[in-house]
């Protein structure tokens, strides 16, 4: 480990979900943008306490679905009615009716791929390592019985003393700085 490590952020440990939720409300109201709460299980109401808006992943899904539908229609039109016309069962060379089931499948396929990769993109995944995973207290707590609020140093509102004070007022028993 190099001696000149840069700080990543402050982690503050809480024993109860309600405490972590109230801390989240304080941080939300203070206007922080680069922070997160890690809990061993989903805490109801945390989204609102953190001020998290509806995820933009839906736009990826919609565009993926639209792409899938269009490519299905174009593909079938291209293959059956343009590139190599083939009369089947006295049906028209192209009709949206017979092209629909395949286009519909492609809508779902592309929409789900777009959802998955959109989520990856928005979360900046995959990544090989995250500074928090180096911290023993974090790894053993957040997946077991502690509720951990993390405020990153990259946040424009971050100040080591002020933010630490804010987390102390919120009632955290243990606050420490995690390094990159």
């Amino acid at each position: 480990m190099s001696a000149t490590s840069t700080p990543f952020g402050l982690i503050a440990e809480f024993d109860k979900p309600a405490d972590a939720m109230h801390a989240a409300e304080k941080i939300r109201d203070a206007g922080f943008t680069r922070w997160d709460v890690h809990t061993p299980f989903p805490v109801h109401g945390m989204d609102a306490a953190m001020g998290i808006k509806n995820s933009p992943v839906g736009y990826f899904t919609f565009l993926g679905g639209l792409t899938g539908y269009t490519s299905g229609m174009i593909m079938i039109w291209w293959m059956n009615a343009f590139d190599y016309t083939l009369a089947v069962g006295g049906k028209p060379m192209f009709s949206p009716f017979f092209a629909f089931p395949v286009s519909y499948e492609l809508t779902i396929l592309f929409a789900s791929f777009a959802t998955l990769f959109g989520m990856f993109t928005l979360n900046r995944l995959p990544r090989l390592h995250h500074p928090l995973l180096k911290n023993r207290r974090f790894t053993s707590g957040a997946s077991h019985d502690k509720f951990i609020v993390v405020v990153e140093t990259g946040d424009p509102k971050f100040s080591e003393t002020e933010t630490r004070k804010l987390l102390e007022i919120a009632g955290s028993q243990h606050i420490e700085m995690v390094e990159e």
């Binding site: 069962g89 006295g90 049906k91 009716f97 017979f98 629909f100 089931p101």
Partner: peptide
């Protein structure tokens, strides 16, 4: 409704 229409259309 599409399923109903499609099967009827396809079988003709």
């Amino acid at each position: 409704h599409f399923s109903q229409y499609f099967l009827i259309w396809n079988a003709a």
